Amino acid sequence: MAKLANIKAEDFPDKMALATEIITASAHSGTHVDAPYHYGPICEGKPARTIDQIPLDWCFGPGVVLDMRHKEPGTEITVEDMKRALEKINYKLKPKDIVLLYTGCDEYWGTDTETYLRMQSGLGVAGLDWLLDQGIRCIGIDAWTLDRPIHAMVASYQKTKNKSHLWPTHMHGRKREYIQIEKMANLGKIPQPYGFLVSALPVKFEGCSGGWCRAVAIIKEKSSFLTSPNHFTRS
């Protein structure tokens, strides 16, 4: 812009112009929201909504943390797991609650990539269906994917040759509409399992399958950041 205005950096106070950056990254880098279009082009028999088309009230609302840290990495989070977690905190899900699955995986952020990718449990299709039946439309997790980790899914596929074992929870989004927040962090720092608000408004990338977000828990005028400390861009 300075060049267009025919001025140089030396013309500014302290002989310095303004800082700016150009960022090139996947819309699924760092903490982000997956839109239905991420799962496939058709959802519930209609064109799947892209990240700029999802209702914003799906990304802002009452939050509830379900503690799944007892689950072994690679295992499936089941309906019974979530029911027990809700009984433990004496809470009943309400439509439009934002459910946050606390696996403890974010504690491995900053270790080697292979370790981080393995240290999570993941939501199964039966569990996803149950949440959707309760009126939930947004589900967050403190891990790389809402599904089980890659190595677990691939091992199941190689053993059975059943394609439904590959990203089953994502693929189920072709049948039922929902969004997910991936690569969250610091869920354990929220001082209460419910009674707070979650804001995870995604960047409005036109026609895209996902968008970065700054996920925040809002608690009595104080905020606890839930975003990952760095962008996770390695494959």
Rank of each mutant, 00 (worst) to 15 (best):
Y102Q: 01
R84L: 10
D97Y: 03
A85C: 03
E87R: 13
R84Y: 08
R84D: 07
G74Y: 08
A85P: 09
A85Q: 08
V99E: 13
K71W: 02
L100Q: 12
E76D: 06
E72M: 00
P95Q: 06
L86M: 09
L93K: 10
L86N: 08
K94E: 07
D81L: 14
K83W: 12
P73Y: 05
E87P: 00
L86Q: 08
I77W: 13
K96C: 00
K96M: 04
I89D: 13
N90S: 15
T75N: 00
K96I: 00
I77D: 08
L101N: 10
D97Q: 02
R84I: 03
I89W: 15
E72I: 00
G74M: 04
T78W: 15
Y91R: 15
E72N: 12
K92Y: 02
E72F: 05
K83S: 01
A85I: 07
D81K: 11
L101Q: 05
K88E: 14
K94T: 02
K94M: 09
R84Q: 04
L101T: 07
E72G: 02
K94A: 07
N90C: 08
K71C: 15
K94W: 01
K92H: 09
E76T: 15
V79K: 05
Y91H: 15
D97P: 07
K83T: 11
L93V: 04
I89S: 13
K83G: 09
L101I: 13
I77G: 11
I98T: 10
N90G: 11
K88G: 03
P95L: 10
I89G: 10
K71H: 08
N90Y: 14
P73W: 05
K71V: 05
L100F: 11
K71T: 10
P95S: 06
I89K: 12
E80F: 08
E76Y: 13
Y91E: 07
D81M: 09
K96F: 06
L101M: 12
E87N: 08
L86H: 14
P73T: 03
I89H: 14
K92T: 14
Y91C: 14
G74S: 01
K83D: 15
Y91I: 09
P73V: 07
D81S: 14
M82S: 09
K94F: 02
T78S: 14
N90V: 13
N90I: 01
K96Y: 02
M82R: 15
L100G: 15
L86D: 01
T75P: 02
L86R: 09
K88T: 01
E80A: 05
K88V: 03
I77N: 10
M82Y: 14
G74A: 04
Y91P: 11
K88W: 03
V79W: 11
L93C: 03
D81T: 01
L93D: 00
T75H: 04
E76V: 12
R84H: 06
E72D: 15
I98E: 12
P73E: 01
K96T: 02
I98Q: 11
Y91S: 12
L86F: 01
I77E: 06
K94L: 03
L100C: 04
P73Q: 04
L86I: 13
D97C: 00
I98P: 13
K88A: 15
K71Q: 09
T78G: 10
D81Y: 07
I77H: 04
Y102T: 04
E80P: 00
D97A: 07
K92G: 06
K96A: 00
